[in-house]
Design a protein around this nucleic acid. Structure first.
Lengths: 221, 221
DNA sequence: CTAAATTTTTAGACAAATCTAAATTATTTT
DNA sequence: AAAATAATTTAGATTTGTCTAAAAATTTAG
Protein backbone atom coordinates (compact mmCIF):
# COMPACT_ATOMS: atom_id res chain seq x y z
CA UNK A 1 0.00 0.00 0.00
CA UNK A 2 1.02 3.61 -0.52
CA UNK A 3 0.04 6.93 1.00
CA UNK A 4 -2.09 9.51 -0.76
CA UNK A 5 1.01 11.65 -1.28
CA UNK A 6 2.90 8.80 -2.90
CA UNK A 7 -0.08 8.22 -5.17
CA UNK A 8 -0.04 11.86 -6.25
CA UNK A 9 3.64 11.67 -7.07
CA UNK A 10 3.13 8.50 -9.11
CA UNK A 11 0.25 10.05 -10.98
CA UNK A 12 2.29 13.17 -11.78
CA UNK A 13 5.25 11.09 -12.98
CA UNK A 14 2.92 8.93 -15.06
CA UNK A 15 1.32 11.94 -16.77
CA UNK A 16 4.67 13.62 -17.39
CA UNK A 17 6.11 10.37 -18.79
CA UNK A 18 3.28 10.10 -21.30
CA UNK A 19 4.36 13.34 -22.95
CA UNK A 20 8.01 12.45 -23.61
CA UNK A 21 10.21 9.37 -23.94
CA UNK A 22 13.10 10.70 -21.84
CA UNK A 23 13.17 10.29 -18.08
CA UNK A 24 11.19 12.86 -16.11
CA UNK A 25 13.25 15.45 -14.27
CA UNK A 26 12.88 16.63 -10.71
CA UNK A 27 11.82 20.19 -11.37
CA UNK A 28 8.97 19.27 -13.70
CA UNK A 29 7.53 17.03 -10.97
CA UNK A 30 7.98 19.84 -8.46
CA UNK A 31 6.22 22.19 -10.86
CA UNK A 32 3.28 19.93 -11.46
CA UNK A 33 2.76 19.26 -7.75
CA UNK A 34 3.48 22.83 -6.63
CA UNK A 35 6.24 21.79 -4.26
CA UNK A 36 10.03 22.18 -4.09
CA UNK A 37 12.71 20.14 -5.86
CA UNK A 38 14.14 19.20 -2.48
CA UNK A 39 10.86 17.61 -1.43
CA UNK A 40 10.63 15.78 -4.73
CA UNK A 41 14.13 14.33 -4.32
CA UNK A 42 13.16 12.98 -0.89
CA UNK A 43 10.06 11.33 -2.26
CA UNK A 44 11.85 9.90 -5.30
CA UNK A 45 14.19 8.01 -3.01
CA UNK A 46 11.26 6.52 -1.20
CA UNK A 47 9.42 5.51 -4.37
CA UNK A 48 12.61 3.97 -5.80
CA UNK A 49 13.05 2.03 -2.56
CA UNK A 50 9.60 0.54 -3.16
CA UNK A 51 10.41 -0.26 -6.81
CA UNK A 52 7.69 2.05 -8.08
CA UNK A 53 10.16 4.13 -10.11
CA UNK A 54 13.70 3.78 -11.50
CA UNK A 55 15.71 6.63 -10.14
CA UNK A 56 19.35 7.64 -10.77
CA UNK A 57 20.72 10.73 -9.06
CA UNK A 58 20.77 13.80 -11.32
CA UNK A 59 19.41 11.68 -14.18
CA UNK A 60 15.65 11.84 -13.64
CA UNK A 61 13.13 9.01 -13.20
CA UNK A 62 11.19 6.46 -15.17
CA UNK A 63 8.08 4.79 -13.80
CA UNK A 64 8.23 0.99 -13.42
CA UNK A 65 5.54 -1.47 -14.49
CA UNK A 66 4.51 -1.77 -10.85
CA UNK A 67 4.31 2.01 -10.39
CA UNK A 68 2.46 2.47 -13.65
CA UNK A 69 -0.17 -0.04 -12.61
CA UNK A 70 -0.89 1.98 -9.50
CA UNK A 71 -0.91 5.27 -11.43
CA UNK A 72 -3.30 3.92 -14.05
CA UNK A 73 -5.66 2.70 -11.34
CA UNK A 74 -5.75 6.19 -9.83
CA UNK A 75 -6.42 7.75 -13.23
CA UNK A 76 -9.21 5.21 -13.68
CA UNK A 77 -10.80 6.17 -10.39
CA UNK A 78 -10.42 9.87 -11.10
CA UNK A 79 -12.11 9.69 -14.48
CA UNK A 80 -14.95 7.46 -13.34
CA UNK A 81 -15.71 9.88 -10.50
CA UNK A 82 -15.69 12.72 -13.04
CA UNK A 83 -18.31 10.89 -15.08
CA UNK A 84 -20.37 10.34 -11.95
CA UNK A 85 -20.18 14.00 -10.95
CA UNK A 86 -21.23 15.32 -14.36
CA UNK A 87 -23.62 12.58 -15.43
CA UNK A 88 -25.34 11.71 -12.16
CA UNK A 89 -24.93 14.82 -10.02
CA UNK A 90 -25.12 17.29 -12.95
CA UNK A 91 -21.97 19.26 -12.20
CA UNK A 92 -20.42 21.23 -15.04
CA UNK A 93 -17.27 19.69 -16.54
CA UNK A 94 -15.11 22.58 -15.35
CA UNK A 95 -16.14 21.93 -11.73
CA UNK A 96 -15.39 18.25 -11.35
CA UNK A 97 -11.61 18.00 -11.50
CA UNK A 98 -10.82 19.10 -7.94
CA UNK A 99 -13.55 16.95 -6.40
CA UNK A 100 -12.37 13.89 -8.35
CA UNK A 101 -8.85 14.69 -7.14
CA UNK A 102 -10.02 13.90 -3.62
CA UNK A 103 -12.31 11.01 -4.44
CA UNK A 104 -9.67 9.14 -6.45
CA UNK A 105 -7.77 8.27 -3.28
CA UNK A 106 -10.49 7.04 -1.00
CA UNK A 107 -12.32 4.55 -3.11
CA UNK A 108 -11.81 0.82 -2.78
CA UNK A 109 -11.47 -1.16 -6.00
CA UNK A 110 -14.80 -2.86 -5.34
CA UNK A 111 -16.55 0.49 -4.98
CA UNK A 112 -15.07 1.61 -8.29
CA UNK A 113 -16.15 -1.59 -10.04
CA UNK A 114 -19.72 -1.00 -8.91
CA UNK A 115 -19.58 2.66 -9.85
CA UNK A 116 -18.29 1.77 -13.32
CA UNK A 117 -21.13 -0.69 -13.77
CA UNK A 118 -23.71 1.81 -12.52
CA UNK A 119 -22.42 4.41 -15.00
CA UNK A 120 -22.68 1.92 -17.86
CA UNK A 121 -18.96 1.28 -18.44
CA UNK A 122 -18.15 4.68 -19.94
CA UNK A 123 -14.97 4.68 -22.07
CA UNK A 124 -14.22 8.41 -21.86
CA UNK A 125 -14.48 11.03 -19.14
CA UNK A 126 -16.25 14.40 -19.60
CA UNK A 127 -13.07 15.90 -21.08
CA UNK A 128 -12.69 13.15 -23.65
CA UNK A 129 -9.86 11.38 -21.82
CA UNK A 130 -10.03 7.58 -21.95
CA UNK A 131 -10.96 5.60 -18.83
CA UNK A 132 -8.64 2.61 -18.18
CA UNK A 133 -10.53 -0.65 -17.66
CA UNK A 134 -10.10 -3.02 -14.72
CA UNK A 135 -7.01 -4.59 -16.32
CA UNK A 136 -5.40 -1.22 -17.09
CA UNK A 137 -6.21 -1.23 -20.81
CA UNK A 138 -6.77 2.26 -22.23
CA UNK A 139 -8.74 3.08 -25.38
CA UNK A 140 -6.92 5.31 -27.84
CA UNK A 141 -8.17 8.87 -27.49
CA UNK A 142 -8.76 11.03 -30.55
CA UNK A 143 -5.57 12.42 -32.04
CA UNK A 144 -7.26 14.76 -34.50
CA UNK A 145 -7.59 18.38 -33.46
CA UNK A 146 -10.02 20.93 -34.83
CA UNK A 147 -7.14 23.16 -35.99
CA UNK A 148 -6.18 20.55 -38.57
CA UNK A 149 -9.77 20.25 -39.83
CA UNK A 150 -10.82 21.20 -43.37
CA UNK A 151 -13.25 23.78 -44.67
CA UNK A 152 -16.88 22.71 -45.16
CA UNK A 153 -16.37 19.43 -43.28
CA UNK A 154 -18.30 18.36 -40.17
CA UNK A 155 -16.65 17.16 -36.97
CA UNK A 156 -17.81 15.81 -33.62
CA UNK A 157 -16.08 17.17 -30.51
CA UNK A 158 -14.49 14.39 -28.43
CA UNK A 159 -12.24 16.14 -25.94
CA UNK A 160 -9.68 18.80 -25.06
CA UNK A 161 -5.91 19.16 -24.79
CA UNK A 162 -6.01 22.04 -22.33
CA UNK A 163 -7.73 21.01 -19.08
CA UNK A 164 -7.54 24.37 -17.35
CA UNK A 165 -10.69 25.66 -15.70
CA UNK A 166 -10.59 28.90 -17.70
CA UNK A 167 -10.48 27.06 -21.04
CA UNK A 168 -13.26 24.68 -20.01
CA UNK A 169 -15.42 27.57 -18.87
CA UNK A 170 -14.81 29.36 -22.17
CA UNK A 171 -16.01 26.28 -24.04
CA UNK A 172 -18.98 25.89 -21.68
CA UNK A 173 -20.06 29.48 -22.38
CA UNK A 174 -19.73 29.11 -26.15
CA UNK A 175 -21.55 25.77 -26.16
CA UNK A 176 -18.58 23.72 -27.35
CA UNK A 177 -18.96 20.53 -25.33
CA UNK A 178 -17.94 16.93 -26.16
CA UNK A 179 -20.61 15.23 -28.23
CA UNK A 180 -21.49 18.46 -30.04
CA UNK A 181 -20.91 18.57 -33.81
CA UNK A 182 -19.61 21.57 -35.73
CA UNK A 183 -18.99 22.56 -39.35
CA UNK A 184 -16.00 24.64 -40.44
CA UNK A 185 -17.24 27.56 -42.55
CA UNK A 186 -14.04 29.43 -43.25
CA UNK A 187 -10.37 29.46 -42.25
CA UNK A 188 -8.39 32.72 -42.24
CA UNK A 189 -5.03 32.43 -44.03
CA UNK A 190 -3.58 35.20 -41.92
CA UNK A 191 -3.92 33.86 -38.33
CA UNK A 192 -5.56 30.47 -38.94
CA UNK A 193 -8.57 31.47 -36.91
CA UNK A 194 -11.78 29.79 -38.09
CA UNK A 195 -15.47 30.42 -38.42
CA UNK A 196 -17.56 27.46 -37.33
CA UNK A 197 -21.24 26.67 -37.13
CA UNK A 198 -22.89 24.69 -34.34
CA UNK A 199 -25.84 22.31 -34.72
CA UNK A 200 -28.22 25.08 -33.66
CA UNK A 201 -26.91 27.35 -36.48
CA UNK A 202 -24.94 29.55 -34.05
CA UNK A 203 -21.90 30.96 -35.88
CA UNK A 204 -18.69 31.32 -33.94
CA UNK A 205 -15.17 32.57 -34.58
CA UNK A 206 -12.38 30.81 -32.71
CA UNK A 207 -8.64 31.44 -32.64
CA UNK A 208 -6.09 28.88 -33.79
CA UNK A 209 -4.96 28.56 -30.13
CA UNK A 210 -8.44 27.43 -29.19
CA UNK A 211 -8.82 25.14 -32.20
CA UNK A 212 -5.54 23.39 -31.38
CA UNK A 213 -6.90 22.50 -27.94
CA UNK A 214 -10.13 20.95 -29.18
CA UNK A 215 -10.08 17.27 -30.12
CA UNK A 216 -12.51 15.96 -32.75
CA UNK A 217 -13.40 12.99 -34.87
CA UNK A 218 -14.94 13.04 -38.36
CA UNK A 219 -18.69 13.43 -38.19
CA UNK A 220 -20.49 10.09 -38.30
CA UNK A 221 -17.40 7.98 -37.62
CA UNK B 1 -10.49 24.09 8.46
CA UNK B 2 -9.46 20.94 10.27
CA UNK B 3 -7.53 17.80 9.39
CA UNK B 4 -9.13 14.43 8.81
CA UNK B 5 -7.74 13.26 12.15
CA UNK B 6 -9.28 16.19 13.97
CA UNK B 7 -12.59 15.42 12.30
CA UNK B 8 -12.41 11.83 13.51
CA UNK B 9 -11.76 12.96 17.07
CA UNK B 10 -14.68 15.39 16.94
CA UNK B 11 -16.97 12.70 15.58
CA UNK B 12 -15.92 10.27 18.30
CA UNK B 13 -16.44 12.87 21.03
CA UNK B 14 -19.81 13.80 19.54
CA UNK B 15 -21.03 10.19 19.50
CA UNK B 16 -19.75 9.52 23.04
CA UNK B 17 -21.40 12.73 24.31
CA UNK B 18 -24.75 11.66 22.92
CA UNK B 19 -24.80 8.65 25.25
CA UNK B 20 -24.21 10.47 28.54
CA UNK B 21 -24.55 13.96 30.01
CA UNK B 22 -21.20 13.97 31.85
CA UNK B 23 -18.01 15.08 30.10
CA UNK B 24 -16.32 12.43 27.96
CA UNK B 25 -13.14 10.96 29.44
CA UNK B 26 -9.82 10.42 27.70
CA UNK B 27 -9.76 6.66 27.75
CA UNK B 28 -13.19 6.22 26.16
CA UNK B 29 -12.04 8.38 23.25
CA UNK B 30 -8.84 6.36 23.01
CA UNK B 31 -10.92 3.20 23.03
CA UNK B 32 -13.28 4.29 20.32
CA UNK B 33 -10.45 5.45 18.05
CA UNK B 34 -8.11 2.54 18.85
CA UNK B 35 -5.30 4.78 19.97
CA UNK B 36 -3.54 5.59 23.26
CA UNK B 37 -4.63 7.98 26.00
CA UNK B 38 -1.40 9.92 25.52
CA UNK B 39 -2.25 10.63 21.89
CA UNK B 40 -5.76 11.65 22.86
CA UNK B 41 -4.46 14.15 25.42
CA UNK B 42 -2.27 15.76 22.77
CA UNK B 43 -5.17 16.11 20.39
CA UNK B 44 -7.55 17.42 23.06
CA UNK B 45 -5.18 20.33 23.68
CA UNK B 46 -5.20 21.16 20.01
CA UNK B 47 -8.98 20.96 19.67
CA UNK B 48 -9.44 23.10 22.81
CA UNK B 49 -7.03 25.65 21.34
CA UNK B 50 -9.35 25.90 18.33
CA UNK B 51 -12.45 26.21 20.54
CA UNK B 52 -13.93 22.98 19.20
CA UNK B 53 -14.12 21.42 22.66
CA UNK B 54 -14.02 22.55 26.30
CA UNK B 55 -11.18 20.74 27.98
CA UNK B 56 -10.02 20.79 31.57
CA UNK B 57 -7.05 18.66 32.57
CA UNK B 58 -8.06 15.40 34.29
CA UNK B 59 -11.73 16.42 33.98
CA UNK B 60 -12.68 15.22 30.49
CA UNK B 61 -14.17 17.16 27.59
CA UNK B 62 -17.42 18.62 26.31
CA UNK B 63 -17.94 19.49 22.67
CA UNK B 64 -18.69 23.16 21.91
CA UNK B 65 -21.41 24.41 19.58
CA UNK B 66 -18.74 25.07 16.95
CA UNK B 67 -17.27 21.57 17.30
CA UNK B 68 -20.69 19.98 17.27
CA UNK B 69 -21.58 21.71 14.02
CA UNK B 70 -18.54 20.17 12.36
CA UNK B 71 -19.24 16.74 13.85
CA UNK B 72 -22.86 16.78 12.71
CA UNK B 73 -21.80 17.71 9.20
CA UNK B 74 -19.47 14.70 9.10
CA UNK B 75 -22.22 12.41 10.35
CA UNK B 76 -24.48 13.85 7.65
CA UNK B 77 -21.93 13.08 4.94
CA UNK B 78 -21.29 9.61 6.33
CA UNK B 79 -24.95 8.64 6.35
CA UNK B 80 -25.72 10.08 2.92
CA UNK B 81 -22.83 8.11 1.43
CA UNK B 82 -24.18 4.99 3.14
CA UNK B 83 -27.52 5.51 1.45
CA UNK B 84 -25.76 6.00 -1.89
CA UNK B 85 -23.71 2.84 -1.48
CA UNK B 86 -26.70 0.63 -0.61
CA UNK B 87 -29.38 2.27 -2.72
CA UNK B 88 -27.45 3.18 -5.87
CA UNK B 89 -24.49 0.80 -5.90
CA UNK B 90 -26.36 -2.11 -4.26
CA UNK B 91 -23.91 -2.87 -1.48
CA UNK B 92 -25.18 -4.78 1.54
CA UNK B 93 -25.74 -2.68 4.66
CA UNK B 94 -23.00 -4.49 6.56
CA UNK B 95 -20.43 -3.51 3.89
CA UNK B 96 -20.92 0.23 3.68
CA UNK B 97 -19.64 1.58 6.98
CA UNK B 98 -15.90 1.47 6.26
CA UNK B 99 -16.30 2.94 2.79
CA UNK B 100 -18.45 5.78 4.11
CA UNK B 101 -15.79 6.34 6.78
CA UNK B 102 -13.40 7.40 4.01
CA UNK B 103 -15.88 9.24 1.85
CA UNK B 104 -17.17 11.41 4.70
CA UNK B 105 -13.92 13.37 4.77
CA UNK B 106 -13.35 14.12 1.13
CA UNK B 107 -16.66 15.45 0.03
CA UNK B 108 -17.29 19.15 -0.39
CA UNK B 109 -20.55 20.52 0.99
CA UNK B 110 -21.78 21.27 -2.52
CA UNK B 111 -21.14 17.66 -3.58
CA UNK B 112 -23.12 16.45 -0.58
CA UNK B 113 -26.03 18.79 -1.34
CA UNK B 114 -26.26 17.37 -4.85
CA UNK B 115 -25.92 13.82 -3.59
CA UNK B 116 -28.70 14.39 -1.07
CA UNK B 117 -30.93 15.75 -3.82
CA UNK B 118 -30.09 12.86 -6.15
CA UNK B 119 -30.97 10.36 -3.41
CA UNK B 120 -34.31 12.08 -2.81
CA UNK B 121 -33.57 13.68 0.59
CA UNK B 122 -33.56 10.44 2.62
CA UNK B 123 -34.17 11.01 6.33
CA UNK B 124 -32.59 7.79 7.60
CA UNK B 125 -29.52 5.78 6.63
CA UNK B 126 -29.59 2.01 5.95
CA UNK B 127 -29.20 1.27 9.67
CA UNK B 128 -32.11 3.50 10.64
CA UNK B 129 -29.95 6.35 11.94
CA UNK B 130 -31.27 9.84 11.13
CA UNK B 131 -29.52 11.99 8.53
CA UNK B 132 -28.95 15.60 9.69
CA UNK B 133 -30.19 18.18 7.19
CA UNK B 134 -28.18 21.08 5.80
CA UNK B 135 -28.84 23.17 8.89
CA UNK B 136 -27.88 20.38 11.28
CA UNK B 137 -31.44 19.43 12.25
CA UNK B 138 -31.86 15.75 13.09
CA UNK B 139 -35.11 13.79 12.96
CA UNK B 140 -35.88 11.78 16.07
CA UNK B 141 -34.99 8.14 15.52
CA UNK B 142 -37.25 5.37 16.79
CA UNK B 143 -36.90 4.76 20.49
CA UNK B 144 -39.03 1.61 20.60
CA UNK B 145 -37.14 -1.66 20.52
CA UNK B 146 -38.52 -5.03 19.53
CA UNK B 147 -37.74 -6.46 22.98
CA UNK B 148 -40.41 -4.22 24.47
CA UNK B 149 -42.98 -5.29 21.88
CA UNK B 150 -46.18 -7.17 22.75
CA UNK B 151 -47.49 -10.55 21.71
CA UNK B 152 -49.63 -10.78 18.56
CA UNK B 153 -48.78 -7.21 17.54
CA UNK B 154 -47.15 -6.21 14.23
CA UNK B 155 -44.07 -3.97 13.98
CA UNK B 156 -42.01 -2.44 11.19
CA UNK B 157 -38.23 -2.60 11.56
CA UNK B 158 -36.64 0.86 11.46
CA UNK B 159 -33.06 0.41 12.63
CA UNK B 160 -30.51 -1.13 14.98
CA UNK B 161 -28.71 -0.28 18.20
CA UNK B 162 -25.72 -2.54 17.56
CA UNK B 163 -23.88 -1.48 14.39
CA UNK B 164 -21.26 -4.25 14.42
CA UNK B 165 -20.67 -6.11 11.17
CA UNK B 166 -21.40 -9.44 12.80
CA UNK B 167 -24.82 -8.33 14.04
CA UNK B 168 -25.72 -6.76 10.69
CA UNK B 169 -24.68 -9.91 8.86
CA UNK B 170 -26.78 -12.01 11.22
CA UNK B 171 -29.80 -9.84 10.44
CA UNK B 172 -28.99 -9.95 6.71
CA UNK B 173 -28.96 -13.77 6.80
CA UNK B 174 -32.23 -14.04 8.71
CA UNK B 175 -33.94 -11.47 6.47
CA UNK B 176 -34.45 -8.89 9.22
CA UNK B 177 -33.79 -5.61 7.35
CA UNK B 178 -35.20 -2.11 7.92
CA UNK B 179 -38.57 -1.74 6.22
CA UNK B 180 -39.51 -5.37 6.88
CA UNK B 181 -42.51 -6.01 9.11
CA UNK B 182 -42.79 -8.77 11.71
CA UNK B 183 -45.44 -10.17 14.06
CA UNK B 184 -44.58 -11.40 17.55
CA UNK B 185 -46.02 -14.90 18.01
CA UNK B 186 -44.82 -15.80 21.47
CA UNK B 187 -42.55 -14.52 24.23
CA UNK B 188 -40.77 -16.97 26.57
CA UNK B 189 -41.13 -15.99 30.26
CA UNK B 190 -37.88 -17.74 31.10
CA UNK B 191 -35.29 -15.91 28.92
CA UNK B 192 -37.48 -13.37 27.14
CA UNK B 193 -36.59 -14.87 23.77
CA UNK B 194 -39.35 -14.48 21.19
CA UNK B 195 -40.89 -16.27 18.25
CA UNK B 196 -41.64 -13.94 15.36
CA UNK B 197 -43.11 -14.29 11.90
CA UNK B 198 -41.92 -12.43 8.80
CA UNK B 199 -44.09 -11.18 5.95
CA UNK B 200 -43.26 -14.31 3.94
CA UNK B 201 -44.52 -16.53 6.80
CA UNK B 202 -40.98 -17.53 7.85
CA UNK B 203 -40.99 -18.26 11.58
CA UNK B 204 -37.96 -17.26 13.59
CA UNK B 205 -36.76 -17.47 17.17
CA UNK B 206 -34.62 -14.62 18.44
CA UNK B 207 -32.91 -14.05 21.79
CA UNK B 208 -33.69 -11.08 24.01
CA UNK B 209 -30.17 -9.77 23.28
CA UNK B 210 -31.04 -9.60 19.61
CA UNK B 211 -34.49 -8.14 20.20
CA UNK B 212 -33.03 -5.35 22.33
CA UNK B 213 -30.82 -4.29 19.43
CA UNK B 214 -33.62 -4.05 16.87
CA UNK B 215 -35.53 -0.76 16.62
CA UNK B 216 -39.16 -0.79 15.46
CA UNK B 217 -42.24 1.32 15.05
CA UNK B 218 -45.85 0.15 15.31
CA UNK B 219 -47.07 -1.35 12.04
CA UNK B 220 -48.85 1.19 9.85
CA UNK B 221 -47.69 4.25 11.81
C1' DC C 1 37.29 23.86 -23.01
C1' DT C 2 36.82 26.52 -19.11
C1' DA C 3 33.44 29.56 -16.66
C1' DA C 4 28.90 30.75 -15.62
C1' DA C 5 24.33 29.40 -14.99
C1' DT C 6 21.11 25.99 -13.89
C1' DT C 7 19.50 21.85 -11.82
C1' DT C 8 19.65 18.54 -8.33
C1' DT C 9 20.86 16.82 -4.02
C1' DT C 10 22.18 17.08 0.88
C1' DA C 11 21.89 18.93 5.51
C1' DG C 12 19.29 20.50 9.05
C1' DA C 13 14.85 22.00 10.81
C1' DC C 14 9.82 21.91 11.48
C1' DA C 15 4.80 20.45 12.05
C1' DA C 16 1.43 16.73 12.56
C1' DA C 17 0.21 12.62 14.65
C1' DT C 18 1.66 8.89 16.93
C1' DC C 19 4.00 5.85 20.55
C1' DT C 20 6.29 4.10 25.22
C1' DA C 21 7.59 4.94 29.71
C1' DA C 22 7.60 7.87 33.64
C1' DA C 23 5.31 11.24 36.51
C1' DT C 24 1.21 13.28 38.22
C1' DT C 25 -3.59 13.57 39.65
C1' DA C 26 -7.92 11.33 40.88
C1' DT C 27 -10.54 7.61 42.76
C1' DT C 28 -11.21 3.42 45.63
C1' DT C 29 -10.27 0.47 49.19
C1' DT C 30 -9.25 -0.68 53.65
C1' DA D 1 -7.38 9.33 56.05
C1' DA D 2 -3.57 6.93 54.23
C1' DA D 3 -2.42 3.43 50.87
C1' DA D 4 -3.31 1.18 46.69
C1' DT D 5 -5.16 1.40 42.19
C1' DA D 6 -6.62 3.57 38.07
C1' DA D 7 -6.73 7.34 34.88
C1' DT D 8 -4.46 11.10 32.82
C1' DT D 9 -0.75 13.89 31.47
C1' DT D 10 4.12 14.92 30.41
C1' DA D 11 8.60 13.89 28.44
C1' DG D 12 11.07 12.28 24.88
C1' DA D 13 11.28 9.76 20.53
C1' DT D 14 9.63 8.35 15.80
C1' DT D 15 7.56 8.73 11.10
C1' DT D 16 5.91 11.32 7.13
C1' DG D 17 6.10 15.06 4.31
C1' DT D 18 7.58 19.45 3.94
C1' DC D 19 10.78 23.61 3.78
C1' DT D 20 15.22 26.80 3.28
C1' DA D 21 19.90 27.31 2.47
C1' DA D 22 24.17 25.40 1.10
C1' DA D 23 26.84 22.05 -1.58
C1' DA D 24 27.50 19.21 -5.61
C1' DA D 25 26.71 17.83 -10.31
C1' DT D 26 25.29 18.90 -14.88
C1' DT D 27 24.43 21.80 -18.71
C1' DT D 28 25.13 25.92 -21.41
C1' DA D 29 27.83 29.84 -23.19
C1' DG D 30 31.65 32.34 -24.54
Amino acid sequence: MQTETEENYLKAIYHLSAKRAEPVNTSSIAGSLSTTSASVTDMLKKLAEKNLIEYERYRGVRITRKGEKIAINIVRKHRLWEVFLTQTLKFRWDEVHSMAEELEHVSSDELIKRLEEYLGFPRFDPHGDPIPDLTGKISAPSNLCLASGECDKRYTLTGVNDHSVSFLQYLERTGLKPGISVRILEIQEYDHSMQIELKNKTKLSISNDVAKNILVKNYGE
